[in-house]
Design a protein around this nucleic acid. Structure first.
Length: 1060
RNA sequence: GGGCGUUUAGCUCAGUUGGCUAGAGCACCUCGUUUACACCGAGGGGGUCGGGGGUUCAAGUCCCUCAACGCCCA
């Protein structure tokens, strides 16, 4: 590139960075330049990140903006450091969540259920939804400047990921790590599906508490003839397989009593009475019932059995802590197949589990004459029949918590359903080992606990979901009712021409019901043949169907495909170049709520499939909360669209704010205001109406509302949630936050500092550096640059984002703009100093831009492009042509030899002197125009440090230094400033406001006195002086200085008071 | 119920291994448009570090306890 002479005048360059214009141009430039694309290059060191794929349920919010900013910062820095850097993008199909949103829409807009549409049509609708939101999500990421390799964008349900899923499932099935089993699920009888825990609401309804008597079989003398159990769901008694009593009722009652007493102590006076009543009742109960409870316990231990009425089934009396001796009769009926707590009791006590319900919510063949009744009808019948038998002891009215399906609003029935499971024992262990031996580092480290605890439970992973949206389970099954049929089926499968052991695996699942007679009565198969087929074997799949096998209607848990993300996106199971080069990936950046669900599973699946960990580092970042301390989430609808922020403040400001929020431990709150865009009657100079502009905090209501009324102008405006035509037509309100404003201001500060540089780099040709031209402030800036670049690199590599941004902010604004640029002004004005100053300016700005680029890519690129025209050759020790785009520039690696603590101290001395002068100006209300004279009393070594910078007192404080040295005497009327090692006298002849000066000095006196007494106290402490001699020595020095300062201040005060 | 975390200025947050008068930004007050920037500059006021107890010469920092809030798992 030839350097064309380019001139700027101040009018050409706006004083505000036009981010909207710049962003789109720069995005095009990066995209067309292929800067985001990574091609495996074995000669270069790889650095790779896979994006946590956002769910296609909805648009992204600021939580995602944070997550993705952090990834982009790293990937951009690594790219600049010369790594072969890949950021793999994509989205997640998010099984139930997406299907639920689409079904909800369907219900709202068309009043249809999925059954009205059918599987194929519903899935098609979900794909449409996915297309729309994927586009929107990727657009949001692009607008944020995320430098993902978009050519490689994946979707967890696409063909490549599908192949990985099939291969994994097949492999685990073949190793018998996938098996078929029963599990208690939340069954929605209306929709005929399982719903997850977070889709179950609880509703308090008026219900009954029925007390039944179960006869004891062959009671011994003194033993009761019946035990009494109570239930809110009588129909479930048909599936009872035991009655439980507490193993130690006395201890359990004591525990409850002591908890109540604690509660009483802490309670409010108005609660005390009620609690006391409970305590009394408990004591009474203990007296009356304990012997009976202990007798029951003994009966259980003695193996006593009960006769389950209506079913005439013998069931045991067992001991389990689930029984609550403080409630009812102290006995609890156990229905393992229809109650989660009972299910656990059954597992602990080894009880049989009897399913009494069909998928439609009716009673099944297990319950004889009750078969075919709905659960509700069954309840009525059971109560009637028990009453007829004289076994109904009493009925209480009671409020009960009823689980309701969030989706169908009908009651949830706990239901024992057939599910596929992944056996987790070995897999979990491998993932635990990877973290305990340090191959995978989780940061901050405290998150390791949760990861290890969760995996340590080694609970098998139920992977079936009764949904239509997801990876269909690749298993074809056939129930066989006889041994002959079983053998024949297996034989038939094996003899299919398409059959091949490498792609087809067979399991036979025996019926859990071992009682042959019962099995036949219940029409249960002897065994079910399951055939798992690898991907790309359609002929075999068809042949299996033709042979009478049916594919499992369920789909896989969405986390099954996400667990493969780091290798499936790179093409596994194919051994692609990408996989070889970029796997294991370098860093995973995610939030803590999915450490177990996702991170842990990626580790174990990575190890299982690739034999290697999926990533070296896991960084867990804070979560963004709204003003009310609630985490932003798609489902809660309290998230803020990053595009809204970008629109108003620019992508760089958004990114800087995000990175700046990313501290070590905190979840960060981000309260936001709406800004009213509605036009008012007022007009500006051109006659255009002025918008209202009222800024007011979001409330819980308005944060999720599509339209909001401005409390000031009373007009409505649209929010990001506007959907209806009327809402969208309203003016759109912006979202404001102090954090974005701070960042936007910083962006603008950088813009204007660069604007100043542009105005002064006119006609620049790199001037040779003469050692003698390098001033103290140059050395200071070079020292700062060396220090900051090393420190920022280190901080970013250790994920200390907020520390890095704070340091950059401080450096760019307070050091570069406030001091160095100010000092350069004088030198630009002097023709002889100008060339050197230009070279220093170009170099410094160049380094600052590169350091800021990962966080603020757009503005840094924009300025870089201008610099490229103005001064393409930059550098300090040597000049070199810079890269065309900053995205491809080298990361600053400055010669650390320039770090110079002496120079930094020297500069600090200047800064503190300057600060003192400015303080006097402000206190004395001198304005800017009045020039003052001042002198400094100090030793010659201090004077020689200040000397080279002394001219800047004039330009930066409008103060002339007239004299400096040990013999300096204060002028008659002066303001005295006492600093360590020096006294500054500002000559205020005729200017002084004595009262203000006295006030200032008095304050100074108080603070010095406080400081001195603190130091004296510390030094008077023998143990301290003995333990920390070095620290004590330092304090002694500063004490002496403070005492000198105090003396000077007191002296000055005395003189001033005399004048009053 | 179990675990993890948080509580510092009006607000949002920093504060390394305990150690000099606890910091920043915003907001607030005073002053100021010298041509990079009013999305700016200079200066200022404002905190018994959630409550209580302990360890220590010394505690925002370590320990115990209580409270409130957030998240994960039951």
């Amino acid at each position: 590139m030839t350097s064309q002479p380019l001139t700027f005048s101040a009018e050409d360059i706006p004083t505000r960075f036009d981010f909207a214009k710049s962003q789109s141009q720069i995005l095009d430039m990066w995209q067309s330049g292929g800067y985001f694309h990574a091609t495996p290059d074995p000669s270069r060191k790889p650095y790779s990140i896979v994006i946590p794929p956002p769910n296609v349920t909805g648009a992204l919010h600021l939580g995602h903006a944070l997550n993705n900013t952090l990834q982009d910062v790293l990937i951009r820095m690594k790219r600049m450091q010369g790594f072969n850097a890949l950021w793999m993008p994509g989205t997640d199909h998010a099984g139930i969540a997406t299907q639920a949103v689409v079904e909800k829409r369907l219900k709202e807009n068309e009043n249809k259920t999925r059954h009205d549409l059918g599987r194929e049509e519903l899935v098609k609708r979900i794909w449409d939804w996915k297309d729309e939101y994927e586009k929107r999500i990727l657009g949001q990421l692009k607008q944020m400047g995320c430098s993902c390799d978009w050519d490689r964008t994946r979707f967890t349900l696409d063909e490549t990921c599908g192949r990985a899923v099939r291969r994994t499932f097949f492999d685990l099935f073949n190793k018998e790590l996938i098996y078929r089993g029963k599990r208690l699920v939340n069954w929605d009888t209306f929709l005929g599906t399982t719903v997850s825990n977070d889709e179950v609401d609880s509703k308090t309804v008026q219900g009954n508490f029925w007390h039944f008597m179960y006869p004891v079989i062959d009671p011994k003398p003194n033993e009761p003839a019946h035990v009494i159990v109570a239930t809110t769901r009588p129909e479930t008694m048909l599936g009872d397989t035991a009655v439980a009593v507490h193993p130690d009722p006395s201890a359990a009652l004591d525990k409850v009593a002591s908890e109540l007493r604690d509660k009483l102590k802490k309670s409010n006076p108005n609660e005390k009475e009620a609690i006391q009543e409970q305590i009394d009742a408990l004591a009474e109960r203990r007296k009356e019932m304990l012997p009976a409870l202990e007798l029951l316990r003994d009966m259980a231990n003695d193996g006593r059995k009960l006769m389950l009425p209506l079913m005439d089934r013998e069931i045991p009396l067992v001991c389990d802590q689930w029984a609550k001796p403080e409630l009812g009769a102290g006995c609890v009926k156990i229905t393992p197949a229809h109650d989660p707590n009972d299910y656990e009791v059954a597992q602990r006590c080894g009880l049989p589990m009897i399913n009494i319900m069909t998928r439609e919510g009716k009673l099944n063949a297990e319950v004889g004459k009750y078969q075919g009744l709905t659960m509700k009808q069954g309840r009525k019948q059971v109560v009637e029949d028990l009453e007829a038998l004289g076994l109904l002891e009493q009925v209480e009215d009671r409020e009960i918590e009823l689980p309701i399906s969030d989706r169908s609003k009908t009651p949830i029935e706990p239901f024992l359903a057939d599910q596929w499971f992944v056996a987790m024992d070995q897999l979990s262990q491998s993932a635990m080992d990877a973290v305990t031996d340090g191959r995978v580092k989780i940061q901050p480290q405290r998150y390791e606990n949760g990861y290890l605890d969760w995996l340590g439970e080694k609970r098998d992973w139920p992977v079936s979901r009764q949904l239509w949206w997801g990876h269909r389970i690749p298993v074809w099954s056939h129930p066989c009712f006889t041994q002959q049929e079983l053998d024949a089926t297996i034989e038939k499968v094996k003899s299919l021409p398409e059959f091949n052991e490498d792609v087809c695996s067979i399991q036979s699942e025996p019926c859990p019901e071992k009682d042959e007679e019962k099995r036949i009565k219940l029409e249960l198969p002897l065994a079910t043949v399951h055939v798992c087929v690898q991907s790309d074997n359609e002929a075999l799949e068809n042949a299996l169907t033709d042979a009478g096998l049916e594919q499992d209607p369920d789909v896989l848990d969405t986390w099954f495909s996400s667990a493969l993300w780091p290798h499936s996106t790179l093409g596994w199971p194919e051994q692609t170049e990408e996989l070889k080069h970029f796997y294991p990936t370098s860093t995973l950046i995610t939030s803590r709520d999915i450490i177990s669900l996702w991170v842990a599973r990626m580790v174990l699946m990575g190890l299982n499939n690739c034999g290697e960990i999926p990533f070296d580092n896991v960084y867990i970042h804070p979560k963004i909360q709204d003003a009310f301390g609630v985490t932003m989430s798609k489902s809660k609808g309290n998230g803020i669209d990053p595009l809204k922020v970008i629109e108003r403040f620019g992508a760089d400001a958004l990114r800087f704010a995000m990175a700046d929020m990313c501290t070590e431990t905190q979840d960060v709150r981000l309260p936001v205001n709406y800004e009213c865009p509605c036009l008012t009657d007022k007009k500006d100079k051109q006659g255009n109406p002025i918008p209202c502009g009222n800024s007011f905090p979001q409330t819980k209501k308005t944060q999720i509302a599509p339209r909001v009324t401005c409390p000031q102008c009373k007009q409505d405006f649209a929010t990001q949630w506007a959907e209806s035509e009327e809402d969208v037509a309203l003016p759109a309100g912006a979202v404001l936050s102090e954090r974005f404003e701070v960042s936007r201001n910083f962006v603008n500060k950088l813009w204007n500092a660069s604007r100043f540089a542009m105005l002064n780099l006119e006609g620049y040709t790199p001037a040779p550096i003469n050692e003698s031209d390098i001033t103290v402030e140059d050395r200071w800036m070079l020292s700062r640059l060396a220090t900051v670049s090393a420190s920022v690199t280190d901080k970013l590599e250790r994920f200390k984002y907020a520390e890095a941004t704070s340091e950059l902010y401080e450096f760019a604004w307070n050091h570069f703009c406030s001091f160095y640029v100010e000092m350069l002004k004088d030198r630009f004005a002097d023709e002889s100093l100008r060339p050197h100053a230009q070279r220093m300016m170009a170099h410094t700005l160049d380094c600052i831009l590169r350091l800021l680029h990962p966080v603020m890519p757009f503005i840094t690129e924009e300025i870089w492009q201008i610099l490229a025209k103005l001064c393409p050759e930059r550098g300090f020790e040597s000049v070199a042509q810079q890269t065309a785009c900053i995205i491809a520039a080298d990361w600053p690696q400055l010669d650390q030899g320039w770090q110079n603590p002496e120079i930094e101290n020297q500069f600090a001395l200047y800064q503190s002197t300057l600060g003192a002068l400015r303080e006097i100006r402000a206190r004395q209300n001198l304005g800017n125009k009045k020039k003052v004279k001042f002198s400094i009393k100090c030793e010659s070594d201090v004077a020689s440090l200040l000397e080279p910078l002394s001219s800047y007192f004039g330009s930066m404080a409008n103060a002339d230094l007239v004299e400096m040295g040990a013999g300096v005497k204060p002028p008659e009327t002066n303001a005295t400033l006492a600093k360590p090692n020096m006294e500054i006298y500002v000559d205020l002849d005729g200017l002084i406001d004595v009262g203000a000066e006295i006030k200032r000095l008095e304050k100074e006196e108080v603070s010095l006195t406080k400081s001195i007494s603190g130091k004296e106290r510390q030094l008077g402490n023998e143990k301290f002086v003995a333990n920390k001699p070095e620290l004590a020595a330092d304090i002694r020095v500063s004490l002496a200085q403070a005492q000198e300062q105090l003396a000077a201040v007191s002296e000055a005060l005395k003189k001033l008071r005399a004048k009053q």
